[in-house]
Amino acid sequence: MKDLDPLVFVAVFQEMLGILFWPLVAFVVLGAVALLAVLIRDRGLESRRLVRAEALGILGGFAAIALMLWVTASNPRDLLGGPIDWLVTLAIWIAGAFGTTIFLYVMQSLLSARVRTVPGERDRVHTFKAAE
């Protein structure tokens, strides 16, 4: 590991994930594009969906840690080895929480009709502007 080449990481991840590699890359890219699409369509973030997605995203973070523990045959107490372990655990939680939040937000947005802010309903539906 004297010189770290980013392409080596790609090769290693391809070997690690096997046939799942390209579907997962496609899933992540599609997720990002879909998020962008609904943000543009809805002209911002819709707070209710976001709060629901974030609430479940908290669980998603813990699910990501549980998945890593299962894959690595580890015990939760192993996560306390040293500061880098705490940071990696936090990073896994954030990645799981973020991923879950985005996924659920996009799914809710795609499954629901476009948010319309009609007069009189502004108190119920809050929109955050994508750009002021």
Binding site: L80, G82, I84, D85
Partner: peptide, 15 residues
């Protein structure tokens, strides 16, 4: 460390 174990368990064979 756990991260060193994780490397051995999941990253070394692909590498």
């Amino acid at each position: 460390l756990w991260v060193s174990w994780v490397m051995k368990k999941v990253a070394l064979k692909p590498t």
